[in-house]
């Protein structure tokens, strides 16, 4: 069988995997929606979650697509398409491909033509990320039980515990933005983008609370994110 990184067979495999991911997502979406309705949440509220999340997801999804474009230069389209739709993220897939290519003495500056090298890269990409998918079912009961117990014991501390976890995560990413500060004016860009996003969210919050523009709540995250991304395009040539 003649090998090509963009063969019909590989596209077929990709489509089957994508359909599996879509089926799982739709299954959980429908279950959560029905449960929400049973619990007395209004259809309008639940639809608002779906709408605001959909809009919010568009820009990051395009950024993930950019990952497919990057990997497609040497792996063709189907494998990056699969990897970026299931478990993967460019921050993992690129090092995995590079590490295997180095082990085989190959360069990733051109399309892979050796099927064995291609399958080696596919195995490393898959096996390297496997714990992320195997561990949730193994650890779920213990972790979930811990959360329930925590809430039963002291509900107020349970709330603070969960909020602190979120803030711990957010702090790590906010802190990361300052890592390039010492590298000169260009290091200021991510900080200014962060501040722009924060300011836009502040304005949205003001309009929602003080001007009764409740409809804006659905779009606030998207406005602050996309607005800050546009701001990055404008200021980067000035500071680089």
């Amino acid at each position: 069988m003649e090998f090509s990184t963009n063969s019909t067979f590989l596209y077929l495999v990709a489509v089957l995997v994508i359909l599996f991911v879509l089926a799982q997502s739709v299954f959980f979406l429908v279950r959560a929606y029905r449960r929400g309705r049973e619990m007395g949440m209004s259809a309008e509220r639940l639809r608002r979650v779906i709408l605001s999340t959909s809009i919010f997801t568009l820009a990051p999804a395009v950024s993930i697509l950019l990952g497919v474009v990057t990997l497609a230069k040497f792996l063709g389209i189907p494998l990056p398409w699969i990897r970026m739709s299931v478990i993967g993220a460019l921050t993992y897939e690129l090092p995995a491909a590079t590490s295997t290519a180095n082990a085989l003495g190959l360069s990733l500056s051109q399309m892979i033509t050796d099927p064995k090298a291609y399958s080696a890269i596919a195995w490393v990409m898959t096996l390297g990320i496997l714990p992320s998918i195997i561990l949730p079912p193994v650890l779920m009961k213990r972790i979930r039980g811990g959360v329930v117990k925590l809430r039963q014991k002291d509900d107020k501390w349970g709330d603070l515990f969960m909020t602190s976890m979120f803030l711990g995560m957010i702090s790590a990413f906010l802190g990361m933005v300052f890592s390039d500060l010492r590298s000169g004016p260009a290091g200021l860009i991510p900080i200014l983008v962060l501040l722009c996003s924060a300011a836009l969210m502040g304005v949205c919050g003001y309009l929602i609370k003080k001007k009764n523009m409740q409809w804006l709540e659905t779009y606030a995250m998207s406005i602050s994110m996309v607005g800050a991304m546009i701001f990055a395009v404008v200021i980067t040539p000035l500071l680089s």
């Binding site: 950024s63 933005v177 962060l194 501040l195 996003s197 924060a198 969210m201 919050g205 602050s224 996309v226």
Partner: peptide
């Protein structure tokens, strides 16, 4: 700059 753009808004909230 997608991460600072995303976490800036989320951070404020």
């Amino acid at each position: 700059n997608i991460l600072p753009a995303l976490f800036g808004g989320l951070g404020v909230v």
